[in-house]
Design a protein around this nucleic acid. Structure first.
Lengths: 336, 336
DNA sequence: CTGTCAAGCACAATCGATGGTGCATTGTGC
DNA sequence: GCACAATGCACCATCGATTGTGCTTGACAG
């Protein structure tokens, strides 16, 4: 063994006076099946420990075509929901003895596809695809490369998918707002942010309208300001609404943390009393936001549950299309 | 080629009537050096495209002992500073054509060590170690396994390290608070959170005291409440201080977002006017916090710069101990 | 004393890509 | 017409672990 490189089973074999195949069998646990003597096994393990052996996983992967890598493709790390997913994914991978490879791709089709090919080059054992733009394309590549995969957040109708129950969540959130606000709110409740081309936004808007219906309010189309997910777009969209109404609406459902930032940015220019006249509700949860001086309900998506469900599909090598909806949690503000 | 598995250079070689080594040379770009004819090269590339070839990176890694993987070990994904580091790391890896493997280890020694061995099994090309508890041990393992590595956030004095300039940042932050508060603040300014056994906290406390000195205030020891990084610990620590003083202090420097959450939780029980009497400053930046109704300066660590500097060490295969301090940015609240 | 059998292990092929070496061609100069 | 150099490519060993196959012992029955 060269001092600069890691010891191999051959080094161990030499030192323990055994054959490489015996060493391999002992070290990967199949030695019972191969009828290796207990003392030989002990001797080999001893030498392995002395040498500080750790298997070359590339070599094993080459032979077995199983890499031990589970991949996750997601839009960004610096977003609290996606970060919770990463965290839960890492922990679930650890339980399975696999190595997580989490790649963020900025909702960019090319980056998504490149990263996928890259992961396939590493023979990923399984893949979780979160909020992907090119979901259908990614699915086809995975199918052709025979990689088990699940979609999360943004479903694909040709593969197993796990999403938050967007409609139910927003419906509950909206009803909570209507309830807190009482009759005074009239018909003046708005939905801010999101992109109606995307599944999640569409479902949330449906939930919003279902809540209005349930409350006996007309589901007026222009109450939905689907201006995208960005902070600045929401800022301007809200500014525009404020201009039209001459004040804030009575109720405002906000579609994401990014939009909430835009909202806060706009609010920071308004006096306290004006803000107090509006009832806010936010999809997604952020601990700081939950404690900020504006009291409002929030929706917390159950990242850990979603990851667990997603792994169930991967573990079962289930390829049939399916859609699992996880009901998010409504976090009511502490009543002071 | 078996239909279920990916095509290999052998499949291409057969179909293009060439040898596997030629195919390899063409596909990895070394064909000029190996004097392969341009038309042969074209033919091979054509076949490769038809077959949807992508290299088996495990096999390449086995042969070349370069995996193309760059690893990052960090405490958690769901923290805005660490999440920015992950994001910057991913982008920097992409530029280098490497695959990022980001593993969170919950500040747990065993998880840190396990993950490191795991990464070594994959022959990681380079490693970034963020906020590690077992930094010295990790360094030794990396050294023995001959893995280029850099420490970030928590330095190791035996290897290159990149950290925020904690002392300078807190000093600036504290001076900003003292400046905003004016003479009224007297000596009543506190530092909340952190662990004085950890490098970062120690330096921040030094910065705090340097600022006091500079302002001509005595550096009284018990102005530092190093209660740890957790939300609940900060909550109780602040509650305790409030009890002792009978009210909030005039100034409060908060050591992290987690501590800030605890602070907000405590403040949420106080009336607005009391809160307005205290000047807050926070180490770390969070967009929501920046927009919450409490106006305060914040320190934003430069995650992207830190990652870039760290990669400089890795790329240069620089193993000499060194400590690069990146000055964080002071974000002043918008003056309304 | 020979045949049978299990226990205990070694041998060698294999996974896919790489790169050193070396064998044919074709081209050039005298 | 011949030596010699490019040119273009094929052969083969190799990376480290896995696994089907088969060899060698010793025990024991007949």
């Amino acid at each position: 063994m060269n001092d600069l490189s890691k010891p191999t089973i051959y080094d161990i074999a030499t030192k323990a006076a055994a054959s490489p195949s015996t060493v391999s069998a002992v070290l990967n646990g199949s030695w019972k099946k191969r009828r290796i003597g207990a003392e030989t096994a002990d001797r080999i393990r001893q030498v392995a420990r002395e040498l500080g052996y750790s298997a070359n996983i590339q070599a094993r992967a080459l032979r077995t075509t199983k890499s031990g890598i589970v991949g996750m493709i997601l839009p960004q790390h610096d977003n609290s929901f996606f970060a919770s997913l990463s965290q839960a994914f890492t922990e679930a991978s650890r339980e399975r003895g696999a190595m997580p490879a989490i790649i963020s791709t900025r909702r960019d089709r090319d980056q998504e596809v490149d990263s996928l090919w890259n992961l396939i080059g590493y023979s990923v054992d399984a893949l979780m695809i979160v909020g992907a733009k090119a979901h259908d394309e990614l699915h086809e590549i995975c199918r052709d490369a025979n990689v088990p995969h699940v979609f999360v957040d943004q479903p694909c109708n040709a593969a197993p998918s796990v999403v938050s129950d967007n409609a139910a969540g927003v419906e509950e959130l909206t009803l909570a707002i209507l309830d807190r606000a009482g009759a005074e709110i009239g018909e003046e409740i708005y939905f801010l942010g999101g992109d109606s081309h995307l599944y999640a936004s569409r479902k949330r808007i449906e939930g919003f309208q279902a809540a209005l219906r349930q409350a006996g309010l007309p589901a007026i189309e222009d109450r939905v300001l689907a201006c995208g997910y960005s902070r600045t777009a929401s800022f301007y969209s809200l500014q525009d609404l404020y201009g039209r109404l001459g004040r804030l609406p009575k109720g405002l459902i906000i579609n994401s943390m990014g939009c909430f930032e835009g909202t806060l940015e706009f609010l920071s220019e308004l006096p306290e009393q004006e803000i107090a006249m509006c009832h806010f509700g936010v999809w997604d949860y952020d601990p700081i936001a939950a404690l900020c001086r504006i009291s409002m309900p929030m929706i917390r998506q159950k990242a850990e549950v979603m990851i667990r469900k997603a792994f169930v599909h991967l573990d079962a090598r289930d390829t049939a299309p399916s859609l699992t909806k996880i009901k998010p949690e409504l976090i009511l503000p502490r009543t002071l």
